[in-house]
Each structure stands twice: as C-alpha cells, then as structure tokens.
C-alpha cells in the first residue's frame, strides 16, 4: 500500500518535470516570449536604423529591415576624431575605475570579513553609514570643483564611485565563506597576514572578484552623470555623454529646416553610436551573466 503510494507520488513528481502542457504552462511560455520580444524590439529597431540610409530614415522613419543598406554612420564614427576619443575615454575610465575600485573594495572587505578586534566592526559601520545618509549633489559638486579642482579630469568621474557599499556587503559575505582552516594552516607555515590576503584570500575568491569587478565595469561604462557634471571639454567626453549630447542636439536640429540637418547623417549616427555603446556590454554579456545572477542572489539573500 505504502509502496504504491510512493510510486504514485514518484510518478506525479516526474510528471511535474516532463508531463503534458497544461494551459497555465502555455500561458507562461507565451507571456515570457512576449516580454522577451518587448526587450528585444528596441535593440533591433536601433540596430536596423543604424544601417539604414540617412535619407530614408529622415523620410520614411524607422523600419525593421535596413533598406537601403548603409554603413555611412559607422564609417564616420571610426574616422571622426571626437568619436574615437570618446571611445578611448570610456575605455580608460572603465579600466582604470574598475581596477582601482576593485582593489580598494577588496582591501576594505577583507579587513571587515576577518572580524579583527577593534577594527572590523567600527569599519563596517563606517562603511555602511553612507548608505543611510548622503550629503547629496551640492556638497559633492563643490568638493570636486572648488576643493579638489578636478574639472575635466577623468578622476572626477572615477573617484566619486570608487566604493559601493552594496558591493562591500557582497564581498564581505563571500570572504567570510572562505574556510578559516586554510588561512590558519598558512599562518602555521609562517605566512604574514598580508601574504595570506594576496596569496590565498584573493586567488581563492576569483568568482566574487569577477562579480564585483563586473558590476563596477558596467557602472563605469554607463556612467554619464558625473561626466555631465564635471567634464565640459568635448574632446574628453566619454561615450554615454557624447550620446546624451547628440540627443539634445538632434532634438534641437529638429526645429531647424531639414536642409541643415542633411550634411551629416545625424539620425543614423545617433543610432550607430548607440549600437557602439551597447556593443561591448553585449559581447561580454554571455560570459558575465552567470556571475551577475550569482551576485544579485548573494546580495538579496545573504547581503
């Protein structure tokens, strides 16, 4: 009797995984597919538009197939000095910012995670208070422009975002999961605390370093707001700021007679530049995505 019940339960459990299509499953598949479509359409329209001839774009509007096909905007992007320098600026900001932010965050997180007497707890509180109370925009603006004098320097974009308390959370909880025995055995072998951090702690924490590093990298790559505040020299604009500038310029040129806008392919250029901005994230995405999912779930459940 009991065994037949267990068998029945086993069958139904199996059915749950591989059984027929109930209406709710069908609805779910359709629902998810629709949301996927909504996510993808804007990207597709932009990609298609970036390859569409400017005249057609201006005359007929956007379409899902680039007809007639044109690469004029991309040629302009990779030959025009402003656009190349914006790309370089974004790369410099992203690489330097990520390396710096990841090192500093790792150092802080390690010290908090080791539960050192008199040090770790006060340090944790010190790092978390800024999450609760922030000085806001005006003091930051005055600090960077009046006291640090960092206008038109990439440091003005890099420095204010250097340590994200949320990522400190994630890293501390990951560092705490390292087995203490390994660290102790290194101590027995005569390794200093610094050596333990660099030779054992960091190498064993590669996955979490990837998570945190990727969060910083995406953040720096997309950052335009501090750039908008502190960088006024067009030749130093990072990519998103240049793009943002193009939005306002195009809406401005919409008010002008169309003849004025026809010298350069503004619409096409705007779309091509968008593609070029998303491109690197899209390329890194397949490798990075699982780390992000890990990071979010870690932050949401353990953080």
């Amino acid at each position: 009797m009991t065994s037949s019940l267990a068998k029945a339960a086993g069958r139904t459990a199996a059915k749950r995984r591989s059984g027929g299509w109930e209406p709710f499953t069908v609805v779910s598949v359709i629902g998810v597919a629709l949301f996927m479509l909504v996510c993808l359409i804007p990207f597709w329209v932009i990609l298609s538009g970036s390859f569409t001839d400017e005249q057609t774009l201006a005359g007929k509007g956007y379409s899902f197939i680039p007809q007639p096909f044109s690469t004029a905007a991309y040629k302009l992007i990779f030959t025009g000095p402003t656009l190349v320098s914006a790309y370089v600026a974004s790369i410099v900001i992203t690489v330097a910012g990520t390396v710096l932010a990841l090192s500093i965050t790792s150092g802080l997180s390690w010290v908090i995670a080791r539960r050192l007497p008199y040090v770790s707890r006060p340090l944790a509180i010190f790092a978390y208070i800024p999450m609760l109370f922030a000085g806001g925009l005006v003091p930051l603006y005055l600090l960077v422009t009046q006291y640090l004098k960092l206008q038109n320097s990439y440091l003005a974009v890099i420095l204010p975002l250097l340590v994200a308390p949320f990522l400190v959370f994630i890293q501390v909880s990951a560092f705490r999961q390292l087995p203490e025995e390994i660290l102790d055995s290194a101590r027995v072998d005569g390794a200093g605390e610094m050596q333990i951090f660099f030779r054992i702690g960091l190498p064993l924490s590669k996955p979490i370093l990837a998570v945190v590093g990727l969060f910083y990298a995406v953040h720096y790559w997309n950052e335009w707001f501090t750039a908008l505040l502190f960088i006024s020299d067009v030749h130093k604009y990072p990519l998103p700021l240049l793009l943002q500038n193009l939005i306002s310029n195009v809406s401005f040129s919409q008010m002008l007679p169309t003849a004025a806008a026809q010298s350069t392919p503004v619409y096409q250029l705007r779309l091509a530049l968008t593609v070029v901005t998303i491109g690197p994230i899209l390329l890194a995405y397949p490798f990075a995505q699982r780390y992000f999912v890990k990071g979010i779930t870690l932050g949401a459940t353990k953080g």
């Binding site: 150092g107 390690w110 340090l123 010190f126 610094m194 951090f197």
Partner: peptide, 9 residues
C-alpha cells in the same frame, strides 16, 4: 592588516 582598508577609509 587594517592598512588594507586605508584607501577605502
């Protein structure tokens, strides 16, 4: 070891 936290501080 606390030196590691100095830049963040």
């Amino acid at each position: 070891l606390g030196l590691l936290a100095v830049p963040a501080v």
